[in-house]
Structures are given as structure tokens and as C-alpha cells.
């Protein structure tokens, strides 16, 4: 399952590591947009298969941030 950015912004914090298991609703990354922190949570539980971004990266709305299995 792909976790996508809900809005354009820069990646402020990556809250999980590759291989880590995450619960539903757990924050995967925190974006910063318009001086506000926007947490991006996992929709369902799983394991972080791949992180597509690094801290400081700029993302557009709809960009894939992470893949959860």
C-alpha cells in the first residue's frame, strides 16, 4: 500500500524506519506546509517496505512517500 502526501510541502520528519512495523493511524512522516506541521499517518497496519523520501525533500500532493506491506 502506498502512503501519499495529502498536500504539497517539505518533509520535516520521517517518523519510521524501513522494516519497522506500523499501526493504523501511526504517523509515517510529518510534512511542513505553509509553516504548519502535517502528520501523514498509515491507513492500515503493516511493515514499512520502502521510504521514498528523505527529510528536507519537497513533495507535491499525491507523491508517494512510503510503501507499507
Amino acid at each position: 500500500m502506498e502512503i501519499k502526501a495529502t498536500m504539497a510541502g517539505s518533509v520535516w520528519k520521517i517518523a519510521v524506519a524501513q522494516g519497522e512495523s506500523v499501526g493504523e493511524g501511526q504517523d509515517v512522516v510529518i510534512l511542513e506546509s505553509m509553516k504548519m506541521e502535517i502528520p501523514i499517518p498509515a491507513d492500515s497496519p503493516g511493515t514499512v517496505k520502502e521510504l521514498k523520501v528523505a527529510e528536507g525533500d519537497f513533495v507535491n500532493e499525491g507523491d508517494v512517500i512510503a510503501v507499507i506491506e
Binding site: M7, A8, S33, M34, M36, I38
Partner: peptide
């Protein structure tokens, strides 16, 4: 503000 009027989340675009 460019934001959602209920959640106050930003809305660039």
C-alpha cells in the same frame, strides 16, 4: 487564509 475552514489545514494550489 488559504486553508480548510474547518480543520485549518493549509491548502496551497
Amino acid at each position: 487564509y488559504a486553508e480548510d475552514p474547518n480543520t485549518f489545514f493549509p491548502s496551497p494550489g
